[in-house]
Design a protein around this nucleic acid. Structure first.
Length: 490
RNA sequence: GGUCCCAUCGUCUAGUGGCCUAGGACGCUGGCCUCUCACGCCGGAAACACGGGUUCGAACCCCGUUGGGACCA
């Protein structure tokens, strides 16, 4: 079902501000965004805040933040349903006048008891239509119900699922305006989609059952029907709808965990959509390739491993200078910065050197810390294992050799190491590891020459000398005694 | 319970009746590279839920079964 290529398509993203922007919502927003861009149409942002109990200002802010972090811009809005209440009432009364809706003053108690009766008889607990033909006093408390057409097959062509068919017999005469004049969800949505001239309703498939309720309202309001496309759900690992109990679901939580928005977007778009075998997409490619034809109809399970892989990919391929501001956000404030940390170029070098080994910005920050902060903490395991008295001697030799170098380059450092290696009959690896621990405090880092160059001569030598001292000291009483016991078992 | 949706490797997916001895990716795994860890490169295990049709031919079309899920209550 190809869409018009020109064109004037108008789509919308319509979240309820009852929490953060979660992954499912983000994907719905993304698909709407991409479709709008692809067809050069319009994306409308609408905040469905009629549930005043649960809607909050913070949620609105959180959703807007999430969209902006993902760089999903919209063209019109945000429109707020709570600012359109008069309009819903107007159209509700319009339907009333045309006899397409009616007043109902059934009490909560009555409805409750009818429901229980129906349930007992094994019938669907629908409204029994008591007020359909009654004339209820407009001045007494009442709701307005939509007169759902009876015995009618409601059929529509879902752009993703194909033809979907429902029997209106299972539908209630649903309330469109409550006693307090607030519109119900299905009514407000239809009024908005009409007023905002939405041509394609693209939403999660949890709304699939709402569609046959909404279609008769479009018709009653004599509005053209938009096309519908219902996106499959995103599941957690247990194949139920992704929710808080599956861990982080808020897109902002992913930012905090050190993910790049491009990675999350790329991950999300491949959940349900594909373009042949391609896995990595630039924003431009996404806009030019995206269409509904290749959106699948089966739900997908969220897989954090693959997101991580994508994130590593984007990290590796981002220029250091773009990473620096993000790196700063992840880094705890520096207590005593290294002298070279004053130099922006140093930060870029650090980011470029370390981005290839990091899966997240958090990891990148951890790797980067020893090259930015004056003091570096030595991993206790690494100290115990690598900074042995024997290696202390090795470090002393290396320190001497490094000091004698008139200038530090990759080349001169390599030469110095091989000379020490020859003299001590040690391989490069056996030299590099103690130096690595001495300078970075960890057993994992970039190549040893890169490390030395990045830390610089002053810092490197000071840290190596400190490591020499540490290697002569006992590790610590507690660790010593524990080691002793372990040794007995060997 | 009612209505509706879904069904290819563990996961994301390609596949739109012959190109399929089912392709790619994540993960897993063997190896290479190597100063550590990654990256990268080469290789491996791993799937058409089941049963009926339709057809010369079905992963692809139809029906049923099973299994999962959503919504409403």
């Amino acid at each position: 079902m190809p869409l018009p290529k020109d064109s004037s398509i108008r789509v919308r993203f319509a979240p309820s501000p009852t929490g953060h922007l979660h992954l499912g919502g983000a994907r719905t927003a993304l698909f709407n965004f991409l479709l709008a861009r692809h067809y050069k149409g319009t994306l409308v942002l609408r905040i469905e805040d009629t549930d005043r109990e649960r809607s909050t200002q913070e949620s609105i802010a959180a959703i807007l933040d999430g969209l902006s972090w993902l760089d999903l811009g919209w063209d019109e809005g945000p429109f707020y349903q709570t600012k359109r209440l008069d309009r819903y009432r107007e159209l509700g009364h319009h339907l009333l006048e045309k006899g397409l809706a009616y007043r109902c003053d059934c009490t909560q108690e009555r409805l409750e008891s009818r429901r229980e009766e129906a349930l007992k008889k094994g019938l669907p607990p629908r409204y029994d239509g008591r007020c359909r033909e009654r004339s209820v006093d407009p001045s007494s408390p009442h709701v307005i119900r939509f007169r759902t057409p009876e015995n009618l097959a409601i059929v529509f062509d879902d752009l993703i699922r194909g033809t979907l068919s429902f029997d209106s017999g299972v539908l209630d005469d649903l309330i469109i305006l409550r006693t307090d004049g607030m519109p119900t969800y299905n009514f407000a949505v239809v009024v908005d989609d009409i007023d905002m001239k939405i041509t394609h309703v693209i939403r999660g498939d949890d709304h699939i059952n709402n569609t046959p309720r909404q279609i008769p309202i479009f018709q009653a309001l004599e509005a053209p029907l938009p096309d519908f496309a219902h996106l499959p759900m995103i599941y957690g690992p247990d194949r139920t709808r992704l929710s808080k109990r599956h861990g982080a679901t808020s897109v902002m939580a992913y930012r905090d965990m050190g993910f790049l928005p491009q990675a999350l977007v790329n991950y999300l778009v491949r959940l349900g959509w594909s373009h042949k075998d391609q896995e990595i997409f630039s924003r431009e490619e996404l806009v030019s390739y995206f269409d509904l034809d290749h959106v699948g109809s089966s739900p997908s399970v969220f897989n954090p491993e693959k997101l991580l892989w994508l994130n590593a990919h984007y990290l590796k391929n981002s220029p250091g200078e773009e990473l620096v501001p993000l790196l700063r956000e992840q880094l705890p404030p520096l207590t005593v910065p290294l002298p070279q940390s004053q130099d922006p170029a140093h930060w870029i070098r650090v980011a470029d050197e370390l981005k290839g080994r990091s899966k997240t910005l958090v990891e990148l920050a951890q790797f980067a810390h020893p090259f930015l902060e004056h003091s570096r903490t030595i991993d206790p395991e690494a100290r115990k294992k690598i900074l042995t008295p024997e290696n202390g001697g090795v470090l002393e030799q290396i320190s001497l050799a490094l000091r004698s170098l008139s200038q530090w380059t990759g080349e001169s450092l390599r030469n110095a190491f091989s000379q020490v290696g020859e003299a001590l009959h040690l391989k490069l690896g056996e030299l590099a590891q103690p130096v690595r621990v001495a300078v970075t405090g960890r057993t994992v880092s970039p190549g040893i020459f890169e490390v030395l160059l990045l830390a610089g001569r002053e810092v490197s030598l000071a840290r190596i000398d400190e490591a020499v001292r540490l290697s002569q000291e006992p590790v610590s009483d507690i660790q010593e005694s524990r080691n002793g016991k372990e040794d007995l078992h060997d």
